[in-house]
Design a protein around this nucleic acid. Sequence first.
DNA 1: TTATTATTTTAGTCTTACCTAAATTTTTTA
DNA 2: TAAAAAATTTAGGTAAGACTAAAATAATAA
Lengths: 217, 217
Amino acid sequence: MPSISVEDYLKHIYYLGEKGGAVTTSLLAAELKIAAASVTDMVKKLSGQKYLRHSPYRGVQLTEKGRRSALKIIRKHRLWEMFLSEVLHFRWDEIHEEAEKFEHIMSEKMEDKIDEVLGFPRVDPHGDPIPAKDGTVKTIVAFPLSNAEEGTTVRVLRVNDANPELLQYVSSIGLSLNKKLGIKQRIKFDNSLVIKIGSKEMTISSLAAENIFVESV
Amino acid sequence: MPSISVEDYLKHIYYLGEKGGAVTTSLLAAELKIAAASVTDMVKKLSGQKYLRHSPYRGVQLTEKGRRSALKIIRKHRLWEMFLSEVLHFRWDEIHEEAEKFEHIMSEKMEDKIDEVLGFPRVDPHGDPIPAKDGTVKTIVAFPLSNAEEGTTVRVLRVNDANPELLQYVSSIGLSLNKKLGIKQRIKFDNSLVIKIGSKEMTISSLAAENIFVESV
DNA sequence: TTATTATTTTAGTCTTACCTAAATTTTTTA
DNA sequence: TAAAAAATTTAGGTAAGACTAAAATAATAA
């Protein structure tokens, strides 16, 4: 059984890998909020246990074993988020943090029970896919709202879950998963967007728009 | 915040104290399944932090601070057991072990949500009282089935939760909380009891009967 | 009331996962 | 392409919480 620390490393390596770009020691240290020297130690250990491969300055790469372990944790995390949201009625900006602890101590039996109670959901409350038990993950094809073209209509598919303030803000302007919005205008100066949700028009900053993922509609 | 280890020590000290008798270093070591020397260290630490008082060979005693901390964990444990049973439909012999992990990472917010979803229960699925937030605990007045008198009728109020096999056995003979049973006969030789549940008569060993707590009816 | 036995404590280690400070190595820039 | 900057690694430490073996202390029995 991997320790909680090991699970966290694997999970964050997976996340960073998903974003594209090299997962370097220093990037990982920043992500995990620990010293780079500590990451060096752990990377050595994980490499020894064949969870990943490492080439200095070029970054780490999960092996199949590492990827599987990462996805197990992510599955538990997202199922638990779903459960917190649907059954315990937590707000969507609260669930990520709560799930960070539970993902590590959920037995497989509990995972199965929750999956069943929830009716085998495929995405979590932020629109992230819930990895299947066999290690497959459905890719969500979406682009950042910040790239949307003027005059088009888009639908929200996913919102970055790591930032509670962003989630609160997104809710407060009336957005949620699967909502449609119109792109009225792009402000050249700061890349903010004028959008229309229902009958309301408003401006959204590019920083927010970069964390909201949409599809054309 | 007390660590998980500290929480476990406090909880088990409370349990042992409830049974009556001195909570000595060696008893605690046996309960926690760790070496006595390790207990000595931790007791010293907990004593320094005013969770308990210790007099060598005579045992430890929780302070008010220690008692409060112990009851917080026990409350979480029993609420979580209730939740596993009622919402996730775990069997009553499975829940104790699962709850051992969750009690330590449940936030107060989660505790409250679960309490609410369950409708503010007062006892857990084994009949143990759920301590209130203010640190009060309802005492369950019950005596072991092994002490019941021939010819009387009793009602099950509580079953010792620490032993899954016992719980499975108790279920299998058709007993559960609040069930009534008649005491037909006590076998002198081994203190086993002939009991009647509904229309069925059967024999129950004294070992099992010592872990089932009842009231006269 | 002394000897035996049981309990407790001390002393010294181990593991995990983190840290800082000081090398070392690679990459980037001038 | 050498100097500067950035990234990485090494070396040495720390804190929890466990361990074993040996020593000390208390309880019990003869």
